[in-house]
């Protein structure tokens, strides 16, 4: 086990004993169970969970991420006075939060489906897609949270910036896209829209999920274009790679800032 893994293990142990992470698990468990009880153990329940996941996962990852790093600031100083490379410490801190968040999210969704015996066949594949996208968004937005917390030393400003980031990705981006679509309604916008999807990981996950849930018809002609792109193996691979890039870019930027900054 290397230094990053050792630090991640202890950080994860600390995170998993926190009451907030338990609440995080229970919240997804309750919402999923509610969907299953009201919508039945079917694809409908998965569709119902899509918006919950797309809104909650980025918010929780951003807020938990920045608060966790601010709370750990003094202990980080203690670790930095050990013979440890800063990059290894950063990796350990990131994994020590992102992995417990992803695991408790996945467990909160999967356990009710498992209990209801609804993880087989078509529903199982769609639940897996939902969990996969949620885990990817957890990794993306925990990295964004670390970028915010490392670059902004002031805790209050950092939390504010994290919330603004969430509003930007989860709400404002769609509003801007909608404005553009309305303003240029007479032009063919399917291809620009396809490009716009890649500029926001939340939208990327949303479109991917809608395609995988066979809900493209809800999006009209644009849906047909998206369906052609995301329905192909190449399109799917590009989308998954884009989500990977969305994780890697903020993670690398945050790591660079962590390695070079004054504490």
């Amino acid at each position: 086990m290397n230094t990053t893994q050792r630090i991640a293990l202890y950080q994860a142990r600390d995170a998993l004993r926190s009451r907030w992470i338990v609440l995080h698990f229970l919240a997804y468990l309750a919402v999923t169970e509610g969907m299953l009880l009201t919508g039945g153990a079917s694809v409908k329940a998965v569709v119902g969970l899509v918006n919950v996941v797309l809104l909650l996962v980025p918010l929780v990852s951003l807020v938990f991420g920045v608060m966790r790093l601010y709370d750990a600031r003094d202990f980080v100083l203690t670790l930095l006075t050990q013979p440890v490379r800063r990059s290894a410490l950063f990796g350990g801190l990131y994994l020590g939060l992102a992995v417990p968040l992803a695991v408790t999210f996945a467990a909160g969704i999967l356990v009710p489906f498992l209990v209801h015996g609804a993880l087989g066949g078509e529903t199982g594949v769609r639940v897996a897609a939902l969990v996969g996208c949620g885990v990817a968004l957890t990794l993306v937005f925990t990295a964004v949270a670390f970028l915010v917390a490392v670059r902004q030393a002031d805790r209050v400003k950092g939390i504010g910036l994290a919330l603004v980031t969430w509003i930007g990705f989860a709400l404002a981006f769609d509003a801007v896209v909608l404005l553009v679509v309305t303003a240029f309604a007479q032009y063919p916008l399917e291809r620009p829209m396809l490009v716009a999807v890649f500029l926001n990981p939340v939208d990327l996950a949303r479109v991917l999920l809608l395609m995988l849930l066979d809900a493209a018809a809800l999006m009209g002609y644009t849906g047909a274009v998206f369906s052609r792109f995301f329905g192909s193996v190449a399109g799917l691979s590009v989308s998954v790679a884009a989500l990977g890039l969305w994780t890697l870019a903020p993670w690398l930027a945050a790591r660079k800032a962590f390695v070079t900054r004054d504490f």
Partner: peptide, 23 residues
């Protein structure tokens, strides 16, 4: 240097000690 190996024989006691709450 950034390697940090020189810190192996340094002991540091900060003004505001802080450790992970749940460890």
């Amino acid at each position: 240097d950034p390697d940090g190996e020189y810190r192996r024989r340094i002991g540091y006691m900060p003004q505001n000690p802080s450790f992970p709450d749940n460890l």
